[in-house]
């Protein structure tokens, strides 16, 4: 059986959970076993996981699950995996998903793949999974030879695929210890899609000259419905918040569209973004290394080009 950890964020499933659901369903199909999901705490739309191929949803409700703690999560999930006789646990490659996956691998003595970038294959009866390495500069294929396996699915590695009906939801009662971590406060960046989940990203670098010039970047992002990002020196000089820093030492992303404005394309920057499906580069220097990694490029002054770009996008959407 393949068991999906269906991560709930603020009462709902995010796209990353639906991607992981699709991944779990496809893996179960490959192995010829059932796919089930476990939800810790409350989720309004638990049955909807069925639409993505999950056959049954188990919900664990407990006061101790109000806030997610990976130590508690690992205990509950491995108990569930044991009870349901699961052989593979699939999670999304989110902040909590990664921490939980590591703990589960240790607790369950499971081979683990952190950040799978494609669906698994079977070779001589052994499950093979691919993941990115060197911050996207390479791909590695792993053979998972153990009885138990834990896989986290990289955001945007596949599209959520609706092909089923609503699943039945059943309550699973398991012992839930109290968390040792107290959550004092949660600060959310409201209204934007977080970078790892974003399908469209507008990113800008030192070519913008200063934080006061970011208006044109934000206007383009808002016309597209995109999330904004930046290069490292931009975050380091506090022109933009740290969470926008992408690259080898920032967030690694793989959106459908990455628009790089006034970014030279240093190897460390490319490492975090070169798995984007489509890359557009706007730079006044025709020799900027970023053009080598781009699908579309415009050589010219960003201060003239970006407002025109925004206007053209608005025209398309009108």
């Amino acid at each position: 059986m393949v068991l999906l950890f269906a991560e709930v964020q603020q009462g709902n499933f995010k796209k990353t959970t639906l991607e992981a659901a699709t991944y779990a369903a496809k893996t179960a199909e490959l192995l010829g076993v059932a796919s089930v999901a476990i939800v810790l705490g409350e989720a309004e739309n638990a049955a909807e996981l069925g639409l993505y191929g999950i056959q049954k949803v188990y919900q664990v409700r407990h006061d101790h699950l109000k806030n997610f703690d990976n130590q508690v999560g690992a205990i509950v999930l491995s108990a569930a995996a044991h009870q349901l006789e699961a052989s593979v646990i699939v999670l999304s490659h989110t902040s909590n998903g990664k921490a939980l996956a590591g703990r589960l691998a240790a607790r369950w003595n499971a081979a683990s793949i952190s950040g799978a970038t494609g669906l698994p294959t079977l070779k001589d009866g052994v499950l093979h999974v691919r993941k990115g390495m060197f911050s996207g500069k390479a791909i590695a294929e792993y053979a998972l030879k153990s009885e138990h396996k834990v896989i986290t699915v990289m955001g945007n590695a596949l599209q959520p695929l609706q092909h089923g009906a609503l699943a039945s939801v059943e309550t699973l009662s398991l012992e839930v210890p109290s968390p040792k971590i107290k959550i004092k406060e949660v600060k959310r960046v409201e209204g934007i899609v977080p970078l790892p989940e974003a399908e469209l990203v507008v990113s800008a670098g030192r070519g913008l000259k200063g934080p006061e010039n970011w208006g044109i970047v934000e206007e383009l992002a808002s016309a597209l419905g995109a999330t904004t990002a930046c290069s490292r020196p931009v975050a380091d000089s506090h022109w933009r918040p740290h969470h926008e820093h992408v690259g080898q030492t920032g967030v690694a992303i793989r959106p459908n569209l990455y628009i790089a404005i006034g970014i030279s394309g240093a190897i460390q920057h490319l490492a975090g973004v070169n798995n984007s499906k489509t890359i557009v580069v706007i730079n006044k220097d025709a020799d900027a290394p970023f053009f080598k990694a781009a699908d579309y490029g415009i050589v010219g002054d960003l201060f003239e080009i970006v407002p025109k770009f925004t206007a053209a996008v608005k025209k398309l959407k009108a």
């Binding site: 003595n109 499971a110 081979a111 683990s112 793949i113 093979h128 390495m133 996207g136 500069k137 390479a138 791909i139 590695a140 294929e141 792993y142 053979a143 998972l144 030879k145 153990s146 070169n274 798995n275 890359i279 557009v280 580069v281 053009f291 080598k292 990694a293 781009a294 699908d295 579309y296 490029g297 415009i298 050589v299 010219g300 002054d301 003239e304 080009i305 025109k308 770009f309 206007a311 053209a312 996008v313 025209k315 398309l316």
Partner: peptide, 29 residues
């Protein structure tokens, strides 16, 4: 229990398509 079988490089980009700075509508298209 988890062993890498092989490594490879991501597929190379086929090359950049340059669009004239005065023709942004073409890029959007």
């Amino acid at each position: 229990i988890a062993v890498p079988v092989f490594y490879e490089l991501p597929p190379a980009k086929s090359g950049v398509k340059l669009i004239d700075a005065d023709n942004i509508e073409e890029l959007v298209r």
